[in-house]
Amino acid sequence: MPHILVVEDEPKISQLLTDYLKQSNHTVNQLFDGEHVTDWVQQHTPDLILLDVMLPVKDGLTICREIRQNSSVPIIMITAKVEEIDRLLGLELGADDYICKPFSPREVVARVKTVLRRVSPPEDERHESTDKTVLKLDESRYIATFHNANIELTAIEFNLLNLLASDPGRVFSRQQLIDNIYQDHRVVSERTVDSHIKKLRKKLCAANADEDVVHSVYSVGYKLVL
């Protein structure tokens, strides 16, 4: 059974998450402040961490950075502060996903399963993924192949797709997309990014009309779901 560490200073919320996770066949441990989280993770190596941002003693953002220095364990951040989202999704932080309070416990369990499946898919899916690659990107020639169909992309569209494909399932904010695609630091509006994404989606859907793989996350940004 997957081993989940819940780090949440509100006992009722922590216990609610624990109960739902256990009902879904997860082993769960709880910590209620940030003081010893990093040491605990090194000693017990959980399969995933649910980590609240606002914690006593040491905050979740600091803990996430510390853990990332020597571990790639999946981390889902829990936050009640919408303004923290861009920081949670920052390339330098290393969180795998985030959940905003208030939340549904069922949604949390679903997100946990999704992240665990992404980092360690079932054995039969691993074999399938090695035999069939849905999306192929040739960076040297700026050629994209989706479901065995070649897609003609502009350099901006290719770079957008390449960045999204570097971490499927992760939400990239519009500002992160701008910063990574326009290396010359030109002033680019978020609407420009939306326009490029719209064209990219149209071309991908033309290759496979039944699959929209570029998903928008309201007020945050975009992610690639394969």
Rank of each mutant, 00 (worst) to 15 (best):
K132N: 15
P168A: 07
L163S: 05
F146C: 02
V171A: 11
L164W: 03
H185E: 13
I156M: 04
E139V: 11
T145Q: 13
S140M: 15
H147I: 05
H147L: 04
Q176K: 10
E128A: 12
V171N: 02
T145C: 07
K136P: 06
K136Q: 11
K136F: 05
Q175C: 02
L163D: 03
K132W: 10
S129D: 11
D179K: 03
F158K: 04
Y182G: 03
I178R: 06
V134W: 14
L135W: 01
S166F: 05
N180F: 02
D138I: 02
Q183H: 10
N162E: 14
N180K: 07
D131S: 10
D138M: 01
P168C: 03
Y182R: 05
L153T: 09
R170D: 09
A144I: 00
L164C: 02
L161S: 08
V187R: 15
E139P: 14
V188M: 04
T133Q: 14
V171P: 06
E157A: 06
A155V: 15
I143G: 00
S166E: 07
Y182H: 10
T130A: 09
R174G: 05
A144W: 03
D131L: 09
T133C: 02
R174P: 03
S129Y: 09
T133L: 13
R186L: 07
A165Y: 13
S140R: 15
N180D: 11
L161D: 04
G169M: 10
D138G: 00
I156G: 07
Q183S: 11
E157P: 03
F172C: 01
Y142M: 10
N162M: 08
D138R: 00
L161G: 00
I181E: 02
S129M: 12
I181S: 00
K132C: 11
S140K: 15
R170N: 10
N150F: 08
G169E: 03
V188F: 04
I178E: 04
D184P: 03
D184T: 08
K132Q: 14
E157W: 02
E139Q: 08
